[in-house]
Amino acid sequence: MNERPAPEKLPRDGSFDIRDWLRLELMPHFMCPGCGHGIALRALLWALDELRVNKDDLAVVSGIGCSGRTAAYIDANTFHVTHGRPLAFATGLKLARPDLTVVVISGDGDSLAIGGNHFLHACRRNLDMTLILLNNEIYGMTGGQVSPTTTAERFTTTTPFGNNEPVFDACEVAQAAGATFVGREATLQTPNLKDLLKDAIAHHGFSVVEVISDCTEIYGRKNDLGNSPEMILAQKREMRPEAYRNTVDTPFRPNPFNTGVLARRDRPEYLDVYRARTEALRRQGGGK
């Protein structure tokens, strides 16, 4: 790894400083200019900082893809695992070390296509961990292939005449599969995203937060969505905060994505059930 000049030391004013949480020797990170994943990473670290999570008690697991690389910049226990399997890995990790705060960073392709199976079953099991699904509607790192969340008619390297496939709504899928906390927020609303992530990490059970992120270099360029500021501002046009859901005239605002906490349910957490069962068996004198 080539050496980089250390960033300057800054005075402190009591606000969140992301440099406390970064592996400074790896910065600047590898992501393209204007990529929303950096903002999402800031929101995650900010949330962890406000929750006063100890770095040693934190495990961040990520898969392959642009989203997978974001975990590598966090100065904590991070795991970079196989494509689509961060949830499988994290499930094992959480079962072995229930004391850890487990956060999974995954992308739309990683979680919904290649690891779709693991996504469904993680939601079903309701193990106490947090999935951050960075949705940029494309496989960015591998060259810009179509993903399950690519909007219809949009161009990618594998859909040169436009995407014909219908889209997955990750939040609907997660709710249907049984996740007990489901939320969505756009990177434009960083403080809101931070608050949502705080709620999600504090939630006892499996929580899914879909983050609307931008791929400016591939998806934006191929689809003529404008430069980075234009793309991030476009989020504002399309999003519709959940709190306003009942007050907005639905027919007049096509193709919005709801933001905020979309579902919060109470269901037994996997480890609680597991512990209760083992306790009962132990009292019986061991299971047969």
């Binding site: 400083d17 440099r19 992501m31 960083t190």
Partner: peptide, 9 residues
């Protein structure tokens, strides 16, 4: 908040 590269403080 919006700097994806954490360059601004």
């Amino acid at each position: 908040y919006l700097c994806p590269d954490f360059a601004i403080r």
